[in-house]
Amino acid sequence: MELEKRGVVAPLLVTSTFLPLVEAQAKARRVSPRVVVVPHPVGGLNEQELAERIEVAAGALLPLADEARGSA
């Protein structure tokens, strides 16, 4: 969030359990972070499960990144 405040496009890859906490922190810091949510947890997953998380995250991130670059 500090990076976003300093002009960097800084999407947060957040596991679902931590999303409410990220939202609370964002509110306290007066920022609106770009958030990509993946199912919790990420740790402990095998290769296939992690690949599925990556697909989910990439599917959300790429249009978000394109939009940020396009609107710059």
Binding site: R6, G7, V8, V9, A10, V14, T15, F18, V42
Partner: peptide
Amino acid sequence: VIDWLAQRYKVVLVAVGD
């Protein structure tokens, strides 16, 4: 590290959570 990232990069993907 935050200073370096802020000065050097346009986009930073950040991992949050477990």
